[in-house]
Design a protein around this nucleic acid. Sequence first.
RNA 1: GGCGACGUAGCCAAGUGGUAAGGCACGGCUCUGCAAAAGCUGCACCAGCGGUUCAAGUCCGCUCGUCGCCUCCA
Length: 394
Amino acid sequence: MKLFNTLTQSLQEFKPINDTVSIYVCGVTPYDTTHLGHAFTYITFDTLIRYLEYKGHTVKYVQNVTDIDDDVLRKARELDMKWDDLGNREIERFLGEMDSLNWRRPDVYARATDEMERIVQLNEGLLERGLAYVSEGCVFYDVRKDPEFGKMAQAVGLNDYHSMLTIANERGNFPDDKRKRDPLDFVLWQAQAPGEPAWESPWGPGRPGWHIECSSMAMHYLGQQIDIHGGGADLNFPHHTCEIAQSEHYSGKAPFVRTWMHVGMVYQDGEKMSKSLGNLTLVRNLLKEYSADAIRLVLQSHHYRYQWECFPEDLKIAAANAYLFTQVRELVGPELRGEDSMLHNRFIAAMDNDLNTPEATLLLKHAAQQALEEKNINLGSEILRLTKVLGLTA
RNA sequence: GGCGACGUAGCCAAGUGGUAAGGCACGGCUCUGCAAAAGCUGCACCAGCGGUUCAAGUCCGCUCGUCGCCUCCA
């Protein structure tokens, strides 16, 4: 199977390091609702994992949830809720809605607040190696000590280190922070602010920076080098750029990740779907009108690396296609009988080509039309076997 | 401002040098008492200009346009 590695910007033959494929996917911050963009990302990895398992791999899948950060605290204040109550509520909603889409839950769903001890260790390690420094109860990553910083940023077109530095200075969002040595330095541990929750650390009470939890969890649950690390395309910089820096300098092993996979953004009204713009299609609302299979088919009819916009018409088409597969199920019955190697091989070829689900779903659709026309039980059985690989419930 | 991506029919979209998939919409036909559904069928000089090549949507350059990232974001 070939997968596109964001870091090298090329298709690479996928070969796991060990028998068990290690996959880490950046999860959500639980302060708001689940929209179609989230579903696209997580159904993409759900599909990948189902496919890998179908091909005989054992997969260990870890996803984080950032249950303590600025957004959670801010939203909790707005709602006059306790921050952890808000987090718990939104985590339940997220998991519930993803369950409704028939996703395979991660083997480990890790909370940032359960990770404190190891995050502190990671900070200590980076301090020992001279790649971080303490300043007024905070720990910062020292980008000047890391000539390799920004590999991922470069890969996605964000020029080089010096340009990033220049731009960051021009923009001036953080250089005013006198606690930092360099405007690009980022927080590994931040000192407690008045009224905010805090955890103990050698540098005083505080909480983790924005990127450190993922380094910590990935290395703890999966090892210092992992097979696949994924997330939305908006995470490649700065989040994954910083993750690479932290992880590789802590472990002394590179690459931290064999294959970086980034999922394209979903658009609405011509712009990127985002909480701040409010142009959201909510999974919860879609589920009122469409089946999980229809929603999955809409997502899978787009290739994961590319951005797209969801139109109502596409959902109707997907629902019609989902119906085709239920008709195939009626034709075949509960027991699968026979196979169709032609369809199987074409499906494998599509999926092996960087998870080309648009082609795979199209193949299955045409096969379904044919099977129904010919009342072909063998073909129908094969279709149902493969739709199951896509996580469909027909 | 810097950097990057993209620009294929009304819309979505495949296509990684060799006579332009597919889907939706639309038109025609078949079937049906009408309609719907279904089936058949029709519908593109690939943003513009220049270059490389026997051959370019596909490679290179420029222009125009759209979007993204650089700031929390799947």
